[in-house]
Amino acid sequence: MRYEEWNKISRIASRKSLWMLHFCTGCGAVELPPVMTSRYDMERFGMGPMATPRQADVLLITGYLTVKTLKRVVNVYEQMQSPKYVISFGSCPINGGMYWDSYNTVKRLDRYLPVDVYVGGCMPRPEGVMNAFLELMKLIDEGKARGWEKYQKYYEQYKRNQKMAFGFERGKNEGD
């Protein structure tokens, strides 16, 4: 089977079976339980929470990211197996949101990780979250959800930005 055809099967399958990582990085996580549970039931689309990054396909950045969490999120993202996708919730990962002048939250997520779908709002409503999932499925179907390829391609730039946020580039060694 040729690579392209194989790719297509992969896309069809992964669209209908998106396993998300159980990682509540911020307050957006409180709108995930309604989406998961009986009112909105995202398992209809074959989505479900997964316990560890190796098993998961989608990383949900549910809200603001502190520097400390970003370190873990990057680690988790790198442990996930491609194809992998990132959905960001709320306004904080877009431009900082409420915490635009906070000393501990990174503001623009796309400088550190490739984001496939953004959901606006504080909080995004469950309907918005569902819509984002459907949007991601559409993008996967069209072959446009390629954040992970982008991450591989511009790995140096992402790493540099991450290090700058963690404080390596500020002339100080972190972790001591």
């Binding site: 603001y64 502190t66 400390k68 969490t69 915490y99």
Partner: peptide, 14 residues
């Protein structure tokens, strides 16, 4: 802890 620290108390002061 500290994964969710946004510095609310600092932000409120400004």
């Amino acid at each position: 802890v500290g994964y969710l620290h946004r510095g609310f108390e600092k932000l409120m002061e400004s």
